[in-house]
Nucleic acid binder design. Structure first.
Length: 601
RNA sequence: GUUCUUGUAGCUUAAUGGAUAGAGCGCUGGCCUCCGACGCCAGUAGUGGCGGUUCGAAUCCGCCCAGGAGCACCA
């Protein structure tokens, strides 16, 4: 379906053209003065200088063409007027709104048009390290990346999510050396042992005495040696590595499952290894890589840069490869295996220089096609209430597992408070998990990804205000009304989803006279516009804003209008249809954001 | 030193260069014989500073102030 904003924009653009002005001036946006109108065009002011005319004259000329304009034989505007100094204020006609909503209602995708030429997009997010537990620092990448991935898929693209494990560095050598020390090489071990071994070994290798000398220099040396042997394909060490991977990945999967985050690929830095010698040779052959202070680097500064940027290092003076090398190897493999049209990397914004360097090298060397998209979404730091990076009370790193548990506990507490004996323990606990995840994800996603944000568990888990639980509350409330309706009408009602699926198309949606109902309807009609916009801007928080507006608008409508008690059958049916459409849109949006709603709460 | 980034009510935050900067929390009032008051309605208060560009600036540019981060052998 055409989006509502495009329908209006096309009309206004045609208006500008008919009045003899540039079509492109007719771009329409959502009104920033909802008290005055629903949509607005500012083209008349933009065009005033170009045509040496007063903005108002242009606006009036355009408006005269708009008043009778039709879309599929239906009047588009109920009002189109020019206002000083040259705004064009527009309201949608009830007929068009009604028609549009009914079209949405009868479409399983609610009018959302699938990309006609689907793109293959690789989303690189997660960034977990083998043998290290996930901690709060991994939350944003997982949550934002998952939302981006689901947005891309929702728009009809083929998306491949890759966790891109850190599975190849010195950390592996450290673990192997320590296993050796403990005489456990070749024996079974659990994830808890691994998680204890790594920090222990890491500390052991770094520990220095008062003179600054390594206490366990021999151990550190063996760790490096083990790393080197592993990377050269030593069969014994490789077996141990595989074992570490098995144990670790199983545990990571479990943790990501708890976040409802799912990867298509569990590749890692080790997979890039085979490509590294070749890519280094290619960089040298193309004259891009050169030696500098014993290391191999590539210049990435471009003429448009105001200042020189640091070169990208691809090989250390001791011959080992680095972060960028591994990412370059990975991109070469991905090109070979998946031929993606675009890449999206989701990582901490502190890595922005790395991505600039790596992207430029990849382009200069021709590892990706010039038209291939390379995007880095750098997210800000998750801070505590004190505005400093989030830490435990003891000052340590908080494990993600712990954070999730604490969130669920807090939500469970709130459910118990409000529901009391009304809800069984099992249902309350199951719901606490669902609501807790929504609280966590919405709390994160409702902020602009690029900015730092304050993590406030009390706020996120609150059922009031702009929070995940509030959105869920609205969804559940709609379900509750529908259930009541079903009971009265003698219809079967297993759960809201199946009921809505079965009855969504039963009734005709009419334009609602009540202000709050009208607001709700215009919001619903924006569904496709909002999703498209959030996708092009890679901004999940815009979806949050949208569903928050819908929730507010619905609750206001609910307060003003008696739905089940409405005596006019056509009206009542229309209200029910609007309810179901609202439910579908909210549910669809939270699925894109990566969480679900419970049946009751 | 240099580069990037952020600065919006007491707090947390929103705003493709547009009109009176929009919310939430908090605080102050009001609304349940009525479909879930975890709700609704009303009030309170804000763009770090100085210039510039523009018909119009939180947004673009310059300088200043204040925070955060990156900058060659970690990933």
């Amino acid at each position: 379906m055409n989006t509502i904003q495009n329908i209006i924009s096309d009309a206004v653009k045609t208006g500008f053209a008919l009045a003899g002005y540039d079509r492109e001036l007719g771009r329409v946006s959502i009104s920033n003065r909802p008290d005055l109108c629903e949509y607005q065009s500012n083209g008349a002011m933009a065009g005033a200088k170009k045509y040496h005319q007063k903005p108002m004259d242009i606006a009036n000329a355009v408006v005269s063409h708009l008043v009778d304009m039709k879309y599929e034989d239906v009047q588009i505007f109920s009002r189109a007027e020019a206002v000083m100094p040259g705004f064009i204020n527009l309201n949608l006609s009830g007929e068009l709104l009604g028609m549009y909503l009914n079209d949405m209602n009868h479409d399983p995708e609610m009018g959302l048009e699938q990309n006609k030429t689907p793109k293959t997009i690789i989303v690189d997010y997660g960034g977990a390290n083998v043998a290290k537990p996930l901690h709060v620092g991994h939350l944003r990448s997982a949550v934002i990346g998952e939302a981006i991935k689901r947005m891309a898929a929702k728009m009809g693209n083929k998306v491949i999510g890759d966790v891109h494990l850190g599975d190849w560095g010195l950390q592996m050598g450290l673990i192997i050396a320590e296993l050796e020390d403990r005489g456990k090489l070749g024996q079974d071990f659990t994830i808890s042992e691994l998680e204890e071994i790594y920090p222990y070994a890491s500390q052991k290798a770094k520990e220095k005495d008062d003179n600054g000398n390594l206490v366990n220099a021999a151990f550190a040396e063996r760790a490096h040696e083990a790393t080197r042997k592993l990377q050269q394909g030593d069969p014994v060490y490789h077996k141990v590595w595989e074992q570490i991977m098995r144990v670790s990945v199983a545990d990571l999967k479990k943790n990501y499952d708890n976040l409802d985050v799912h990867f298509d690929l569990w590749k890692g830095e080790s997979d890039a290894e085979p490509y590294i010698p070749g890519l280094i040779r290619e960089l040298e052959d193309k004259g891009l890589a050169y030696e500098s202070q014993g290391a191999l680097v590539v210049d990435i500064t471009e003429p448009s840069d105001p200042k020189e940027l640091p070169p990208c290092m691809i090989r250390k003076s001791d011959g080992a490869s680095l972060y960028a090398t591994s990412d370059l190897g990975t991109i070469i493999e991905r090109e070979k295996l998946y031929h993606p049209d675009a890449y999206i990397y989701v990582a901490d914004s502190r890595q922005s220089l790395h991505y600039t360097q790596f992207f430029r090298v990849a382009r200069k060397a021709g590892f990706v096609k010039p038209e291939t998209g390379l995007t880095f979404i750098g997210f800000g730091t998750m801070n505590g209430k004190d505005g400093k990076p989030f830490k435990t009370r003891e000052g340590g790193v908080l494990r993600l597992e712990t954070l999730i548990r604490e969130t669920n506990d807090k939500v469970l507490e709130r459910i118990r408070e409000s529901r009391g004996e009304d809800m069984s323990g099992a249902e309350a606990e199951a719901n606490a998990k669902i609501i807790g995840l929504a609280a966590l994800k919405y709390g994160d996603l409702s902020n602009q990804a690029t900015k730092d944000y304050v993590f406030d568990l009390d706020k996120f888990t609150s059922f009031e205000g702009n929070t995940g639980p509030y959105i869920l509350y609205t969804i559940v409330r709609i379900g509750s009304i529908l259930r009541k309706y079903a009971e009265a009408a003698g219809l079967s009602y297993a759960d809201t989803e199946s009921f809505v699926r079965e009855h969504a198309g039963d009734f005709r949606i009419l334009p609602i006279e009540d202000k709050s109902g009208r607001d709700l309807e215009t919001l619903l009609a924006r569904y496709q516009d909002e999703l498209c916009n959030a996708w092009t801007e890679l901004a999940p928080h815009k979806i949050c804003t949208y569903i928050y507006e819908i929730s507010n608008s619905f609750n206001s409508f609910y307060h003003n209008v008696k739905i089940l008690a409405e005596e006019d059958t056509a009206k009542k049916q229309s209200y029910l249809a609007v309810l179901m459409l609202t439910w579908r849109i909210l549910t669809s949006c939270i699925h894109v954001l990566g969480f679900n709603a419970p049946e009751r709460m």
